[in-house]
Nucleic acid binder design. Structure first.
Length: 526
RNA sequence: GGCCCCAUCGUCUAGUCUGGCCCAGGACACUGGAUUUUCAGUCCAGGAACAGGGGUUCAAAUCCCCUUGGGGUCACCA
């Protein structure tokens, strides 16, 4: 048996689609599972813009997730070039072969004529088939047209009387189409550039791709492609049409179109991710959900997901190992990935589940790793200097340690600005200020009294503070609740957060006292 | 509309090929309780699905047929 070779063929669009990433992942997994090769090929036959620039984000996404390619951009390989725009000779040769063998023809009908034919067929509720007028041309006429330089496209001559074309799909099983119902596809444009359906066949064959794993939306294309493989005398590869990634809560293909995006925003689960973007990205100079949204892989990287979590989540969309295994490392998935366990129906991206994977994988990270990933957020948001000194790093480390599981995404660190702002710039949660400080009549006096206890305390470790407060409430014969909420509000401005004593220890004596004094002053002012 | 694909809890799925162990299992989410100074977490408990209708069979989520529903695709885009 020959080695397994799979490929992913993105077109340089300037961003990597999360659904496309899942397709790429399955290709990569299948290749790695078999010790074969994974090829990255760039479909840039219809590209106006700067290819290198539009490709960079795509390659970056692969690198971020740790999905390496054996052949392709930056790597080369023995079946190159890997940019379709550089393979035109190959396509032209294939077209010529088809033309010479009478399996394709030059169609001189202008686009308007074909469009009219199509419209007429539709009007009569008749299946459209090309009229093939150019086939009726005499040799002399054809030569004359060509001499005149009349524009033409090359169409593949679909063998209408060949009965059925069929494939045995790894996911779908037997699928067949009636050749008599398939219009003749253009395989080469007027400008000499090939079309996707054709270039893909030539490339997959020339690159010795053994398994074409792609989203289900391509299933219909397969009929023409199989016919093309046969006409060209190539071996037909194996196919696996995997379900596409659907928008959360739907069976619809996840799309990046603005109109769809507006719909996604209203989906409760998806909304969370958009809101997160609007909260986080402005702080780190990345725009908002308008510029970076959860359809793009980059979103997950920038919002602070772990590659492990995204990979785990992606692997579980449309694939499962058994009835219980959920958290899986990439190595584990490579080991266990098989196409026969891919489901048939469209599967929606579930932001909540993705977040759950993130929590799991975040829990596996060491404090040092968390610090390394959190620091850049604090730097970009201007909370700490660009070159944080050892003291700052240690402080962030202590904060992250105190945060524990509360830190789910790396960008969550930005939600704790109270540890980085000046004492007189700390803001208070208004509702909680009312509830914990303003309303309880004994809040201010108790706070003032405990402030003196703190002032006289030399050991500001969490343990010592814990002991100090417990002894104090015991002496005063009051419940902890009477003081602790007021204390938390006074020092952090927030009703929730890490353990109270961790907060105090983190801030240190001077800052705690300063903040309590400021709070007391605010309360006096009314 | 033609062609093609799909159909199990709200969601991701196990089970379907090789009918019985499934009055359907897990995870996420949700709800309730316990724990905790808050939040997060953790632990326990709970609700929650075989689209419908016909067959075949001793027996069907599983096989067959029909209906319904959902989706994809119909370009000189990929």
């Amino acid at each position: 048996m020959s080695t397994v070779r799979t490929r992913f063929a993105p077109s340089p669009t300037g961003y990597m689609h999360i659904g496309g990433m899942r397709t790429a992942l399955f290709n990569w997994l299948w290749a790695r599972h078999h010790g074969g090769q994974f090829v990255l090929r760039i479909d840039d036959t219809d590209q106006q813009r700067n290819v290198a620039e539009a490709l960079e984000p795509i390659l970056h996404a692969f690198k971020w997730l740790g999905l390496d390619w054996d052949e392709g951009p930056e790597k080369g390989g023995e079946y190159g070039p890997y940019f379709q725009s550089e393979r035109t000779e190959l396509y032209r040769a294939a077209v010529d072969r088809l033309l010479a063998e009478g399996k394709a023809f030059k169609d001189f009908d202008p686009p308007e004529v074909t469009q009219a034919d199509r419209a007429a067929a539709e009007k009569e509720k008749r299946n459209f088939l090309n009229i093939r007028r150019s086939l009726e041309l005499s040799d002399a006429e054809r030569e004359q047209y060509e001499a005149e330089g009349r524009p033409f496209v090359v169409r593949f001559l679909v063998p209408r009387d060949a009965g059925k074309v069929s494939i045995e799909d790894h996911i779908r099983g037997h699928v067949e189409w009636d050749c008599g119902l398939i219009p003749d596809p253009v395989i080469m444009r007027g400008n000499g550039m090939p079309l996707y359906n054709f270039a893909t066949v030539v490339d997959d064959a020339e690159m010795r791709i053994t398994h074409v794993i792609r989203a289900e939306e391509h299933l219909t294309n397969t009929a023409v492609q199989v016919l093309l493989y046969q006409a060209l005398g190539y071996d037909v590869p194996e196919f696996a049409h995997i379900p596409f990634v659907a928008a959360p809560g739907t069976k619809e293909k996840l799309s990046k179109r603005d109109k769809k995006l507006e719909k996604y925003r209203k989906n409760p689960q998806f909304q969370k991710l958009f809101d997160l973007a609007d909260r986080v990205f402005p702080q780190i100079g990345l725009g908002s959900s308008e510029t970076l949204n959860p359809v793009m892989v980059k979103y997950y990287e920038e919002i602070g997901f772990l590659p492990e979590a995204v990979l785990n989540g992606l692997a579980r969309i449309g694939w499962s190992l058994d009835d219980r295994t959920e958290n899986m490392s990439l190595d584990f998935v490579i080991e266990n990935f098989t196409l026969d366990r891919v489901v048939k129906s469209a599967a929606g991206l579930d932001p909540d589940k993705l977040l759950a994977f993130q929590e799991y994988w975040m829990g596996q990270k060491s404090l040092e790793e968390k610090v390394e990933h959190c620091l850049p957020y604090l730097v970009k948001a201007g909370r700490i200097p660009a070159e944080p000194d050892e003291q700052t790093r240690q402080f962030v480390g202590r904060l992250i340690e105190a945060l524990g599981d509360r830190l789910k995404l790396f960008s969550d660190i930005l939600g704790y600005e109270e540890y980085f702002v000046a004492d007189d710039e700390m803001t208070y949660d208004e509702k909680a200020f009312q509830k914990r400080l303003r309303k309880p009549e004994d809040a201010a006096p108790l706070l003032a009294e405990f402030r003196e206890e703190l002032a006289g305390c030399d050991d500001f470790s969490a343990d010592a503070l814990d002991k100090l407060l417990h002894e104090w409430v015991e002496k005063k014969e009051i419940g902890m609740g009477r003081i602790i909420h007021a204390l938390r509000m006074a020092t952090t401005g927030k009703p929730a957060g890490p353990g109270m004593f961790d907060c105090l220890a983190l801030l240190g004596k001077d800052r705690c006292l300063a903040r309590i004094d400021r709070t007391l002053a605010l309360l006096r002012e009314g």
